[in-house]
Design a protein around this nucleic acid. Structure first.
Lengths: 231, 231
DNA sequence: AGGCTTATGACAAACCCATGACAATTCCTT
DNA sequence: AAGGAATTGTCATGGGTTTGTCATAAGCCT
């Protein structure tokens, strides 16, 4: 797993020195001297971290940083610049930078800052939890909680609950539930489902005066209702 | 959504000043003057970012930072300290910090750095050692200790423990565990896994009344549970 | 061979969950 | 509107499956 860095800096001497140093640390280093050169490299979406100088021949680092964020390009941004006044630093962060280092930089410190940024995920973590009548359901760990006490749900109960949620506000016949949660060629009494539904109702309080509730449709099956409330 | 910060700093004057400043920015600010005071607050797992001083009456910020990472407490760490030599900065990052600011700090810059850290998800740090229910596991040396006596763990036990940790709070089927720890084309009885799990449970006391515990999911597999906050 | 790791078998314990029973509800017929 | 039939809610239970754990055999590396 190789990590790709991009250095945007117009002073060739400085850029090469830094690139050499970082390559020794096993990074793959791309280089750009201008904003125009940098953009296509960033658009290739393979850069894990970009080191930006402020003053560039055809623009400045703040604009480039903002451009990166506006494009939703997923990369970390470290500003490396001679301007160390507080207002410069603040402007750097405001343009979307993750870190700001003033020149002359101390190479070991810069390396540590780069590594610290790379430790942090770029993407936002997706949530695997859903809330039903105040209970929190976590599909990954197959747990459900109501104010810190765990509800007891078996894997079959989970699969039924999931099916109902995937088809909320839609009536599901007992046959459909059986097919989906037990399998097509399994021979089980329909009444078994009623027990699971009863259990779910009890644990999640799926009664009519809650925002989620289960409606039973006589002769057909069940329907998980979710009325959205007026806000 | 309120963001909670923790300031660990023994100089009361400085701490209060910083706290007031950050409260004006709508953060909820907790305070601690010592390592001993800080730990229980961090363990409550509600701190989004901790500002650590280095010199504390009963320890130092580096140790506290390492402790946070070893405990797998999910928080960002910003070191704020009078020691600005490069080796101090490097040591700060090596102990797991996400940012390092030297005193005297510039308040607007500090604020921007705090916000920059909060913009991103919490860092994933691979530490050499991790703590599970009071046992210390060292991945490099493949050893585990409980108050100075070594636990006996075989390499296969280690690989299963590691897999469970990498997927904590996620149910792993026996097949998935086999594929990951034995290999795709190895045919081993599923019950073998149960024995290793049983052994791990015994050695690490992975019972339900501990912060780490193994949940068995009937018909599916196992899940290493570890309390975490909902985001 | 010998020590250590790992796989398997065996047995008890725990746990689902499918089913039946009965009460409660709904629907339909009259 | 009332009675009856069908359907659903829910509890209790037994059987069968799955899991916890110990004991033992099979590999495996020196």
């Amino acid at each position: 797993m190789s990590t790709r860095l991009l250095i945007v800096e117009d002073d060739e001497n400085l850029r090469e020195t830094l690139a050499d140093f970082l390559e020794l640390e096993d990074f793959i280093v791309e280089q750009a001297a201008t904003v125009a050169e940098a953009k296509p490299i960033l658009e290739s979406a393979t850069i894990d971290l970009a080191v930006l100088d402020i003053m560039l021949p055809d623009g400045d680092g703040y604009e480039l940083s903002q451009w990166i964020r506006n494009q939703s390009i997923e990369t970390r941004i470290l500003m490396l610049t001679a301007r160390g006044l507080e207002k410069d630093v603040v402007e750097g962060f405001e343009s979307g930078a993750d870190d700001y280092v003033s020149k002359p930089y101390r190479s070991k410190e810069l390396l540590m800052r780069i590594k610290a940024l790379l430790r942090r995920p770029v993407a936002v973590v997706e949530t695997n939890t859903i809330e039903i009548n105040g209970r929190t359901v976590d599909w990954r760990s197959m747990t459900a909680k109501y104010n810190d006490d765990e509800l007891h749900l078996t894997s079959r109960a989970f699969s039924i609950l999931k099916l109902l949620l995937e088809h909320k506000n839609e009536v599901l016949s007992r046959e459909a539930i059986l097919d989906a949660c037990w399998g097509k060629d399994v021979y089980v009494d329909n009444r078994t489902i009623d027990n699971f539904i009863s259990n779910l109702k009890k644990q999640f309080d799926l009664t009519h005066d809650n925002s989620y509730y289960i409606k039973s449709v006589r002769g057909v099956g069940y329907c998980l209702m979710n009325e959205r409330k007026n806000t």
